[in-house]
Design a protein around this nucleic acid. Structure first.
Lengths: 210, 210
DNA sequence: GTTATTAGAAACCGATTGGTCCAAAACACA
DNA sequence: TGTGTTTTGGACCAATCGGTTTCTAATAAC
């Protein structure tokens, strides 16, 4: 029995995420955040507490939207070969540069670099999100020809877990390169070389068949 | 015919670098910088112009000290095998975490992530420094068994250049992982897997013989 | 020693920072 | 319609931001 909130929290958090994503935590001013979120100062503080909590909410929102989407892509059974799923994910980095001129990179990677070292809670969440990414890569590897090769050799899933972590490391490295100004073409070359080296040979881009 | 400067510019820039390195550009306040540099406000502005120029000076200082040191390691003829030089450089990331608890990562990588997208001049310098790192990896690869394998196959230096870029990407990825909280042991595992995949098999740590 | 020049310490600047407070408006429920 | 509760916008806050100015002290050249 009270006045209802006039804005949608999820929409507001998504807008805040956009600002944090392109400006970073320190670079994002309250005014810029409020304009993007289309809410008043007091509404922000009443709803979220403070700037840091809003950031945490944005990070969680990134987790349940973007990270989840990436993991889904890596588990997508509609693309039978895991190497194709991995190639699709990595190539999307180059595509983002090419088509949208997007050099904001990965919000998770950005946050790991500039906030995780100074904030324990953020660091923990970043670790969890990184682990989710690794799991995604692992799922794709389970459906790859690398898995089949390893099965013949009798090597276990330990090797797959290791490769998943390597791929996630490369993924983060690529996002840094994108921010450093490398072109879409240069990034694609790195991806191809990397996939080749990981024994993921069949790596042409394959679109989902529905 | 004037009063001489009381502080050493290089020392001051090195101290400023330390602050920018651990706090980032926006996170580094004037007061913190001045205290670390042990100079007065007006001296800073007279000598460097403004905060951004000081940052640029710190970035250049990082280039001519740290990046140069890394490249020297990668070209060090006293370590005959290139793969050992590469392993040494990558393993130093894990060592920094283990021995100094240093999670500030690589200042070049940090700057690429949080400043390059917003500042053209910084972006250009970051690109130049990344290229220097790649050249370093290339020099090490020239002295590696991968090179010898490729020579037999008739593959040219193009492949080596590509691998150099991949290694630099991995290097940046590892620095992100370090910031994300991965342990020295976890990072070492990734490095070993990666070196293995790059055909750089002889990868035990080898100390320089003088 | 005088003079020209510059370094240095500190006061000072407006703008902006993140954050609080309060009166008024808007709704749910009776 | 009246009442109670909560959101809202905007005024307000001290602190800090990056940057400037001023004035004094130091010193090299003459």
């Amino acid at each position: 029995m009270a006045r209802p909130r006039e804005f949608d929290i999820e929409v507001a958090v998504e807008q805040a995420l956009q600002v944090f994503w392109s400006r970073g935590y320190e670079g994002a001013g309250l005014i810029e955040l409020l304009e993007a979120m289309q809410i008043a100062r007091s509404s922000l503080y009443k709803t979220f507490g403070d700037k840091r909590s809003l950031f945490l909410a944005a990070l969680t929102h990134y987790d349940i939207t973007r990270v989840t989407a990436a993991v889904s892509l890596l588990r997508d059974a509609l693309i039978p070969d895991g190497e194709h799923r991995i190639a699709n994910l990595l190539m999307s980095i180059a595509e983002a540069i090419e088509k949208q001129g997007d050099r904001r990179g990965c919000f998770l990677c950005n946050t790991a670099v500039d906030q995780a070292p100074h904030d324990k809670e953020i660091a923990e969440q970043v670790r969890r999100m990184m682990s989710r990414m690794e799991e995604g890569f692992f799922c794709a590897l389970v459906a790859s020809n690398l898995k089949r090769t390893l099965d013949l050799n009798g090597e276990g899933e330990a090797r797959l877990l290791k490769t998943a972590r390597v791929l996630n490391t490369v993924y983060n490295g690529l996002r840094v390169m994108a921010k450093a100004g490398y072109s879409a073409g240069e990034i694609r070359t790195v991806i191809q070389a990397q996939l080749h080296q990981n024994g993921l040979e069949n790596m042409g881009l394959v679109t989902k068949k529905i």
